[in-house]
């Protein structure tokens, strides 16, 4: 079983925010304590301290270790993000001002991304005009659509439901309306839709499931 990308991203986030919060509190509290403790009324004569090499080494090395932990956590999650499983279902996505079009292996074309639950999906991302960026906030993944190149991302929907697909790279007038939907269906319902021959299909009755975060 592959590690879950969502959990990995959230883990890196929590580690980073934890370390950050700790450092921020230490810096802020220390500063405030010093301002009160070493106020000119309480401490009229300043001590003549101009440095301490040991201290400076310590506060260089400890943060270095902390950021390396963050780096490795981020890198581990990232490696998983870039390594799509071999059994992934490949869907071609094309961005254009201002809509997404999804094309399946059987040439079926849709403006909504329907996928079967539990199936790893690899999106091959194209653009026909300017830069866009395919963003699935609920799955913590995003990759730019750049004209003249093919980019990719993969994700694995573990629950049925409907999720937002946004465009994250500014692309002009209706950039903020370039939303589409990811609809995760039970396997049989997906294949029922998949094998129906319709040229452009978003007419399927989207089941009334709540958007899951």
């Amino acid at each position: 079983m592959r590690p879950n990308i969502i959990e990995q991203v959230d883990t890196t986030f929590i580690i980073t925010i934890g370390i950050s919060f700790f450092l921020l509190i230490v810096i802020t509290i220390t500063m405030i304590v010093f301002v009160f403790r070493y106020n000119k009324k309480r401490n009229p004569v300043p001590s003549n301290i101009s440095g301490n090499t040991l201290l400076e080494i310590i506060w260089t090395v400890i943060p270095l270790i902390l950021v390396m932990i963050i780096f490795f956590s981020g890198y581990t999650g990232f490696k998983n993000m870039r390594d799509a499983p071999e059994n992934s279902m490949v869907v071609k996505v094309t961005g254009q001002m201002w809509k997404w079009t999804f094309e399946y292996a059987n040439k079926k074309i849709s403006d909504t991304l329907f996928v079967p639950v539990g199936q790893p999906i690899k999106l091959e991302i194209y653009s026909v005009d300017v830069n866009h960026s395919l963003y699935l906030p609920a799955f913590r993944v995003k990759e730019d659509a750049i004209p003249g190149r093919v980019n990719y991302l993969w994700f694995q929907p573990m629950y049925e439901g409907t999720f937002d697909i946004a465009c994250a790279e500014y692309c002009g007038l209706s950039h903020s309306l370039m939303y589409s939907k990811l609809v995760v269906l039970p396997e049989n319902e997906f294949y029922e839709w998949y094998n129906k021959s319709q040229p452009i299909d978003s007419t399927i009755n989207i089941r009334n499931t709540d958007t899951q975060k």
């Binding site: 990308i5 980073t16 450092l23 921020l24 956590s73 981020g74 890198y75 995003k142």
Partner: peptide, 21 residues
């Protein structure tokens, strides 16, 4: 400090993919 520390979230690869742009 808040600006710099949140930069760590952006510097880490997997969280960057989520929060960039």
């Amino acid at each position: 400090s808040i600006g710099g520390l949140t930069g760590l979230v952006l510097g880490a690869l997997d969280t960057n993919i989520h929060v960039t742009d």
